[in-house]
Design a protein around this nucleic acid. Structure first.
Lengths: 243, 243
DNA sequence: AATTGTTTCAAACAGTTGTTTGACAACTCA
DNA sequence: TGAGTTGTCAAACAACTGTTTGAAACAATT
């Protein structure tokens, strides 16, 4: 019944080839745009192989998603061990950027994730539970530490989303960025520059929010918000949505 | 030959119905996922109507894109007249958020734009030229003013992208946000809260970058960067991409 | 009333899609 | 060796895609 080495080798070989080819194709044209014929052609397999090995196209996609997530996570883990929250944030941002943009992985993970977020499939729930939520929790703790102990949970969430938004922008809007600023390639040094900028911007942003949100409690030095910050906030509250 | 009122009325009526239905469908399932049969069914028109009025599906899509962009731009224009750069930034962020998230427009514009960015079609070039680049230029000037006159163009770009990234995050990642933080609906008051937060976060971020980038020039008061900011930047430079 | 140009419509067309089928080869284990 | 399982393959299937066609309905002009 079961299957010693050689048959298993054949099984695993085409299965692996399918997964690899599928990752490329899904990253390039998304789940909907991908055709099993194209995937199988690239994998050097027959059309029926997808049905045989993964049940159907959705099964193959789900497997690709999980594998890419695992791969990215293991290759660029969030560094631990730092106790300085600012350094933790820098590490988080760096590993996140590498996961989604690293040309070493052909940025496949980032592209697939971006498509999955904009046009969710049934696989998104699993992805959120297994990959995204743990990251979100990690970031929540870092930001919470930076904001100071008694920060409003909603404020912590908003700051976390400000950080992640900056990162994912380069992943979601690449086609627009390339058109707006051609020649600004994202190689390793560009990625370093990005990491530095987003970290500095976010740290200053979080500290600004902390200072504005918890105005000068005794025993805690907080700088008072600038005039312009207050005025712009009032501007935001002034205008109402037109019907 | 041409065409008094009534015939034109019929023409414009089905054409408008097609545009309206198409905007909904494209926003829901994207260009690829949309079928002309579905669009025509919702518009109460025949399948051949798309070919007759717009040439083909791509022509209809292009028209929808342009019309949505025009509509959003005219309904939520970037407020002008403020001379305070901080207030300008607040106005920019507010109008941007409204354009892409306003439930009044069923967030169609934002959803369509998000799809177009992640999975570009031939229509993206026109969109960038007519709608996105002017906005980018506007933001560049605001950020440049905030950073101070002699700011590095690359730094200005990075800061601008940090601002836009925060905004678009809520547009691109809505499915994930809804799963991570259910119940955090984005109505008018939520939109106000978002505007206030992103504005404050960005102002603090830009000022932090300005202070770190142009260290204490004579005649210009700039606070020195925090210890953690420098340390995190060094962290970013220390780690190298593993092969 | 006949003509003209415009718009709509049911039907069909040609192509692609995901998936299944049944035969065929390769291998394991008795 | 021979039965039985496993993996591969060409071919076919049914459903759906964007687009076209030619006739009909319609309104305005001649």
């Amino acid at each position: 019944m079961r299957t010693a080495a050689s048959k298993n080798a054949s099984h695993a070989a085409t299965r692996g080839a399918l997964l690899h080819a599928a990752a490329d194709v899904f990253a390039e044209v998304g789940f909907r745009g991908a055709t099993v014929r194209d995937i199988c052609r690239r994998a050097g397999a027959n059309v029926a192989a997808v049905s045989y090995h993964f049940g159907d196209k959705a099964g193959l996609y789900s497997e690709v998603l999980a594998e890419q997530s695992r791969l990215a996570q293991s290759r660029y883990p969030v560094p631990t061990g730092d106790d300085d929250p600012a350094a933790q944030l820098g590490g988080f941002i760096r590993s996140f950027l590498q996961r989604v943009l690293s040309p070493e992985l052909h940025a496949r993970h980032g592209r697939i994730m971006a498509r999955e977020m904009v046009e969710p499939t049934a696989a998104l729930d699993r992805l959120v539970a297994e990959a995204i939520r743990p990251q979100s929790e990690m970031l929540r703790e870092i930001v919470s530490a930076l904001l100071g102990g008694a920060a409003d949970p909603a404020t912590v969430r908003l700051c976390g989303m400000s950080v992640v938004g900056q990162i994912l922008f380069y992943c979601h809007c690449r086609p627009v960025i390339d058109r707006l600023f051609p020649g600004a390639e994202l190689d390793a040094t560009g990625l370093d520059r990005l990491t530095t900028h987003i970290t500095a911007f976010s740290l200053a942003g979080i500290r600004g929010i902390a200072a504005a949100g918890a105005p000068s409690r005794p025993g805690q030095r907080a700088r008072t918000p600038h005039r312009a910050e207050r005025s712009s906030a009032s501007v935001a509250a002034k205008r109402t949505v037109r019907t």
